[in-house]
Design a binder for these strands. Structure first.
Lengths: 180, 180, 180, 180
DNA sequence: TATGAATGAGTATTCATTCAT
DNA sequence: AATGAATGAATACTCATTCAT
């Protein structure tokens, strides 16, 4: 899969020749499906995020209480990251330099994902389970930051990683930080 | 400075010709001082981190109490990031793909920086200001993650950013999370 | 029509995909009718020249006197060029580099066209209206050269062009050059 | 020389790899001297035309009388064409499609060359050796057309060509066409 | 020692042609 | 017979690195 290549070698590092070879298609075919390498990367990102957002929506269904939903949100991200390093933040960091990124659908989806978390936090404030003196953006930073640092440490170390335990530890602290 | 180029255009995007021109040295000289472009980037990173670590050490001097020192630690990172996007995490993300990175001095320094924070947390536990049931690694994840998400949001938006206010908000939450 | 594409974009510039799309036929069909793109271009050229030679033959019918016939010859070329840049000399210039061209039917037709003009000149000499000390090949060069320069200037400028006036001016000079 | 390659294979047909190989320089060097293939072609054209214009100026010196000067003009063109197919009109026909051509120095030089001939014709009218009822533009068409057809026929045939005889025949007719 | 011109392997992308359906 | 998706060789251009001066 091209995704794997992009994640291993980065956007610039993965050549179209390699991507085609890895995918088992001739090089010309790549450019029938996607007009440019950039389009390919964007499309990949979009599909991954879309698949993930669907997955997340399903996971959150039927869960009551903002904190419980936030816990599931964190778990879903770590779980999906473990299974395949979706939402390749590394790729995004390289792609971000491309001026077209901010007009792309992928960017919209990522914004929506951010927004989803912030809405959960807002819910918590309204239902009285989250302190009303927190800065919502900063809470989001704390949660996403914690998730990504955890994922990155997983990625760097060869050790096996435990999604459930990490979720528990992360939520333990985050909830103390924001709970009434 | 080469650093600026790397930060603006990324590792791949900055050409050795540009770097030499910007630095005002002939292109050949670059390869006398550094064997490869990669070595140059590593050396740059190392120097930046070293300078920062010295700065940090000075900032922490004379501050008593683990929490107060952690607060200063966070402030120093955000302050330095604001002034120049040092420890260019973006650069690191690109360079990390290089197998040589994990043997480099730059990596050692970054590990030491991680270790410094973890030692502060350990101190807090020992002096009784931080709960002894937290996972030190996860606390570090939360703090670094929160810092970097904040810095990244600064970088993406054009808005001015307030180091002091961000430090206050971040510490407010993190301390609630880990304090006795 | 493929002809238009070749004339606008040149032989190399017009892609088979565009040609097929413009002609409203699927790309595969192109290569059933013509073995290669080159064959297609040759066939196009041939048909255009054939159509033009028929047109010319009709125009010359019933005209008496070599000079009158030469005048009509010149007029027909300019008239057809104006209506559609047939006998696309630009295309020919590109195609001529192809070693196969000189064995093609298109080349034969062009030779015949040259020959037709030279025969008219010969007629004129025999009927006594054209000096017998002119070099027939050079007269042909003068006439074709004059025609093509005129046509090329038309093509380059945006100005409207007047076939009748150009014919009159060109013939005025050419006839003075060759008349008894 | 790249010129030869362009003339033999056309602008599109000559690849940068071939050009470099023919010139005996590595491919990268080509793009140090010229930013693009197009620039290379333009530069080639410019130099050829400039050299020719210098040559022409020298040839025309000391010749009195517009007709004598026009004769030398024609002779110079044919002579130079024979020696090396300078002012490669074939190349120009391909390059002309490039929108940048009309802003190029090469185009200016070609315009100047056209203008030079038209000035000679104007001189002839003023000194009374050329009829004042001719259209100057059309005379230029006749002369350039005659020259180029002659040169093209030379190029196509393998036969040796005689510059002096061709000049004499061409001038014979052209002068009858325009003389008082 | 210091330089910057020279190098050539490497890159994304195109397009005439084929061939399975 | 008719199609259009699949192919891969070919192309202009870049840039880290070298090396003659």
């Amino acid at each position: 899969m091209a995704r794997v290549l992009f994640e291993e070698k980065g956007y610039q590092g993965a050549t179209t020749a390699q991507i085609a070879a890895t995918a088992g298609v001739p090089e010309g075919t790549l450019f029938e499906d996607f007009r440019t390498k950039r389009d390919l990367a964007f499309a990949l990102l979009e599909r991954d995020i879309e698949v993930y957002l669907d997955f997340l929506e399903l996971q959150l269904r039927g869960i009551e209480g903002a904190l419980n939903r936030i816990r599931k949100f964190i778990w879903s991200h770590l779980y999906t990251w473990k299974r395949r390093r979706f939402i390749a933040r590394f790729l995004i960091l390289e792609i971000r330099q491309d001026p077209g990124f901010y007009q792309s659908h992928a960017y919209d989806l990522m914004q929506r994902y951010d927004q989803d978390l912030m809405s959960l936090i807002q819910e918590g404030i309204e239902e009285g389970s989250i302190r009303d003196d927190v800065d919502i953006g900063m809470v989001r930073n704390l949660i996403f930051g914690g998730i990504e640092q955890t994922a990155m440490h997983w990625a760097l170390k060869e050790e096996p990683f435990d999604v459930d335990a990490s979720t528990r530890q992360l939520c333990g602290m985050v909830f103390r930080a924001i709970q009434i």
